[in-house]
């Protein structure tokens, strides 16, 4: 047997109880993140990306319930683990998190150094003797100008790109094996985004990390990610190596989405129709009402993957005969 994948999410279903009833935010999410790779999770707003991140980090709000499925991190099921152990051993130590808005991740009234060293005191591995030196070395590695002085400054004294570098260094400080990044470049300018993407790629190789990179931007995925998982309305509809999925998208939604991208589309058509409400979603494929090749069985067919090529899986009735 080979080593288990770093992260293996299988048939995850999460519902949230709200004012208007129970919403099935996630229904059938499955993907694998192999060691040393970057997996892009792509989906449009409201598809459940943030609920997925919260599920992986174990920080779902009190109204949310995991109804089904597993989240295995290095072979261990995180969902079966107690909160205490998650806090002590997993979150912030073996799984690092890079949020979308680094400004919100840093407390404005404490110096950057105080905050990052505090995190290290809790989560840094014992092998790291001198926390301060280690941190300065990391800040230098993420190309923050003048790292020694930076420790004594406050978050607002840094630009958006620099703050993101600080947060990345903070995530690395505790020697994680997995980094979960939530749209870390969305708020940044193009050239800064380019710099951060290059940096992330280098860090993954250098530190032997694996990364779950959540984004809505297919262009960023194309640049950065080895594999990708497309999510539509809480269902993972297609997973596979980035190059292959972008070149030969198998699911009608992936195709439609790629056709909307200005780099691809001939005419800007968009996808007609609306995303279904998670309050009353059909049991089968949630894309069926907007799908041009939908069949009568689609809204009823229970979701499951069909192989569409080497490491490429798709959840669509059209591929049922061909792949299996």
């Amino acid at each position: 047997m080979t080593a288990p994948p770093v992260l293996d999410v299988a048939d995850l279903r999460v519902s949230i109880r709200g004012d208007e009833g129970i919403a099935k935010i996630l229904d059938h999410i499955s993907f694998r993140l192999e060691r040393g790779r970057i997996l892009g999770i792509v989906g449009e707003s409201g598809c459940g990306k943030s609920t997925l991140i919260k599920s992986v980090l174990g920080i779902l709000s009190s109204g949310a319930r995991i109804e089904r499925g597993e989240i295995r991190f290095e072979g261990e099921n995180l969902l079966a683990m107690g909160d205490k152990r998650l806090n002590r051993e997993i979150r912030g130590s073996r799984i690092g998190f890079i949020p979308q808005d680094p400004y919100l991740a840093l407390n404005p009234v404490f110096t950057v150094g105080a905050q990052l060293l505090e995190i290290m005191r809790w989560h840094a591995p014992k092998s790291v003797r001198n926390h301060r030196e280690h941190l300065i070395a990391l800040l230098r590695r993420v190309q923050l100008p003048d790292p020694e002085a930076a420790l004594d400054r406050y978050p607002h004294q840094f630009s958006g790109g620099q703050r993101q570098r600080l947060v990345i260094a903070g995530a690395l400080a505790c020697a994680p094996t997995l980094i979960v990044a939530d749209e870390p470049t969305t708020a940044l300018d193009v050239t800064t985004q380019g710099q951060i993407l290059v940096l992330l790629r280098e860090l993954v190789e250098e530190f032997g990390l694996s990364m779950l990179f959540v984004t809505h931007d297919l262009g960023v995925v194309a640049e950065l990610c080895d594999d990708l998982c497309v999510i539509y309305a809480g269902q993972s509809v297609e997973t596979g190596p980035t190059v292959q999925v972008l070149r030969e998208p198998a699911h009608p939604y992936t195709r439609a989405l790629l056709a909307c991208h200005p780099d691809r589309s001939e005419h800007f058509t968009g996808i007609p129709g609306l995303v279904p409400s998670p309050l009353k979603a059909p049991p089968g494929c949630r894309f069926a009402p907007r799908c041009t090749s939908a069949r009568p069985a689609c809204p009823e067919r229970p979701p499951h993957y069909v192989a569409a090529g080497q490491g490429h899986a798709v959840d669509c009735i059209l591929h049922e005969g061909s792949g299996a």
């Binding site: 050239t191 380019g194 931007d217 262009g219 194309a222 640049e223 190059v243 790629l258 780099d263």
Partner: peptide, 23 residues
């Protein structure tokens, strides 16, 4: 040139030739 090179493109392949530093 740097701005165009930094813009993410859907078709991978062309590597980034110029990445400007700093802000």
């Amino acid at each position: 040139q740097a701005l165009l090179a930094a813009a993410p493109r859907l078709e991978p392949g062309e590597s980034r030739t110029i990445a400007i530093r700093g802000e």
